[in-house]
């Protein structure tokens, strides 16, 4: 019999959800291209918004997106957070920065890490560029990019974030 002195005060009740995920045509194309070191999105034929990663349709217009658009690995911080609390099973040691980034030529952000920076100096509108893993480590994964790091370009005014051309600030 178990030790009767201790009263139960807590229980563990984890929930594990097991998925088998098959990427659709557009995400699979995106992953195939990023394995080659290319960031590729899709443009909506109606509103011209460029989405990356592409989902195969425009959430605003409800139409299929088929035109593929190659994007640079430079972008702008749209929003960010400094993570101060360790996350179970996450090897990254806090504090670290997670940011919503919009690539030049894209109209929607994705989430990635921001590093090689002073966390206290990260700001909305900051210009960043991808730091890639060595080519031989590339796979079908967004973490072919280790993180983004700040670059020496003037900040983008808030109203222009997510509206830059593929050529960036100079465009």
């Amino acid at each position: 019999m178990a030790d009767t002195a201790d009263t139960i005060t807590g229980i563990e009740c984890p929930v594990y959800l097991q998925y088998h995920f098959t990427a659709g045509r557009a995400p699979a194309r995106f992953l195939t291209r990023i394995k080659e070191g290319v960031l590729s999105g899709q443009r909506c034929p109606r509103c011209s918004n460029v989405y990356i990663p592409p989902r195969g349709s425009c959430p605003a217009c409800g139409v299929p997106t088929e035109e593929e658009v190659e994007l640079p690995d430079k972008g702008t911080v749209q929003s960010f957070t400094v993570v101060a609390i360790p996350i179970p099973n996450n090897p990254i040691k806090p504090p670290f920065v997670v940011a919503n980034l919009v690539l030049d030529g894209a109209n929607i952000s994705f989430i990635h890490l921001l590093s090689e920076c002073e966390n206290s100096e990260v700001r909305i509108g900051q210009r960043v560029q991808a730091v890639w893993k060595p080519r031989e480590e590339w796979g079908y994964a967004m973490d072919n990019i280790r993180y983004f790091r700040p670059i020496d370009e003037p900040d983008v005014p808030v109203a222009q974030i997510g509206k830059l051309p593929v050529t960036g600030r100079e465009g």
């Binding site: 563990e12 009740c13 984890p14 929930v15 594990y16 959800l17 097991q18 998925y19 088998h20 995920f21 098959t22 990427a23 045509r25 557009a26 995400p27 699979a28 194309r29 992953l31 195939t32 179970p88 079908y140």
Partner: peptide, 14 residues
Amino acid sequence: ADILSQDFELGFTY
């Protein structure tokens, strides 16, 4: 595109 699929598990360690 390549056909890509994989298993993954999402755990909530409540």
